[in-house]
Amino acid sequence: MKKINYNRELCDFCGTCVSVCPQDAIELSENNLEITDKCTVCMNCVYICPLRALEVKNEG
């Protein structure tokens, strides 16, 4: 199954990913980001992240 992973070391918590998420699946606080199970792996966040902190992984 495909899943979006986020790299804590690269992320700057800028929120650009949140603005293009059609599912409201990204929870962003001051210094934490979480992709919730509403995610449908549309890839918008992966393409737009200025720091390339998000990537798609195959799991299970």
Partner: peptide, 12 residues
């Protein structure tokens, strides 16, 4: 209020 990729600028 979510935007298509074309309507967001991503900045450095």
């Amino acid at each position: 209020t979510w935007e298509k990729l074309n309507d967001m600028e991503t900045c450095a």
